[in-house]
């Protein structure tokens, strides 16, 4: 399968407001795909539609070969989603939180997988501690473990570095960078923090007010707007100005 995500004129309207307008995306297998845009650009709404949690008003999407509207369970069993500001059951331990997610995924004999995942995110030593005692960085790593426990083919990470200190950001970004290489997981990384996405993303899509402004590698996009140095910050600003929507940035 060449593309893990493919959308065609994907549109979402809430009443009279159109929050995603005719989106055409193609995300390749094994890549880290940066999904960029300011708050309210339509990034989370798009992810929810791709996951089958929100129905498109028009257009269609294919995620790992499945239609999220007709086969939401097939999509959700293969796709991990880390929502922005994800929460935990503070009265349960890290392991118990993870076990609950494993049970929701109807995983059987998941003991070894549990150990592997906790080791991967570096929480194996603190697995029996209550999550309420965890730092923000540890919680975010546990969130990543919850996404990975089902061995997904694709993960959607919505602002995974939000509220983290520089050390926490580095740890999370390193983990994200390892996903395609070590686990063969494709990643859609939604963020408005361009310098962070620039460190790990193979290709990016820039959204504003629900519209796709550009899609490609940073080098391709830089070349298209006449920049000699491929720099995501500058590319982003150029596309904004060109679209006439910079007021929203």
């Amino acid at each position: 399968m060449e593309y893990v995500v493919e959308t065609n004129e994907l549109t979402k309207r809430y009443g009279r407001e159109t929050v995603v307008k005719g989106l055409n995306l193609k995300v390749r297998a094994g890549e880290i795909f940066g999904f960029l845009g300011p708050n309210g650009a339509g990034k989370t709404t798009t992810l929810l539609m791709l996951l089958g949690l929100s129905e498109p008003s028009s257009g269609w999407a294919r995620v790992l070969g499945h239609d999220p509207v007709k086969e939401p369970l097939a999509v959700k069993s293969k796709v991990g989603y880390l929502p922005e500001n994800t929460g935990f059951y503070g009265d349960l331990t890290a392991r118990e939180n993870l076990e609950y997610v494993a049970n929701l995924n109807r995983l059987v004999d998941f003991e070894r997988r549990l150990e592997e995942t906790l080791t991967l995110v570096g929480l194996i030593e603190v697995q029996k501690r209550l999550v309420s005692t965890f730092s923000r960085g540890m919680r975010q790593r546990l969130a990543l473990a919850e996404v990975l426990i089902k061995k997904p083919g694709l993960v959607f990470l919505d602002e995974p570095t939000l509220g983290l200190d520089p050390e926490g950001i580095t740890t999370i970004l390193e983990l994200i960078a390892r996903l395609p290489v070590e686990l063969g997981v494709s990643v859609i990384l939604s963020s408005h923090l361009l310098h962070l996405v620039d460190k790990v993303a193979h290709r990016v899509a820039i959204l504003n007010k629900g519209r796709l402004l550009a899609m490609g590698s940073v080098a391709e996009l830089a070349q298209a707007v006449g920049l000699s140095e491929p720099n995501l910050e500058e590319v982003y600003q150029k596309y904004y100005k060109a679209s006439g929507l910079e007021d929203a940035a």
Partner: peptide, 9 residues
């Protein structure tokens, strides 16, 4: 949102 993103109706 975490629960709903798991493969359950």
């Amino acid at each position: 949102s975490k629960i709903l993103s798991q493969p359950i109706y």
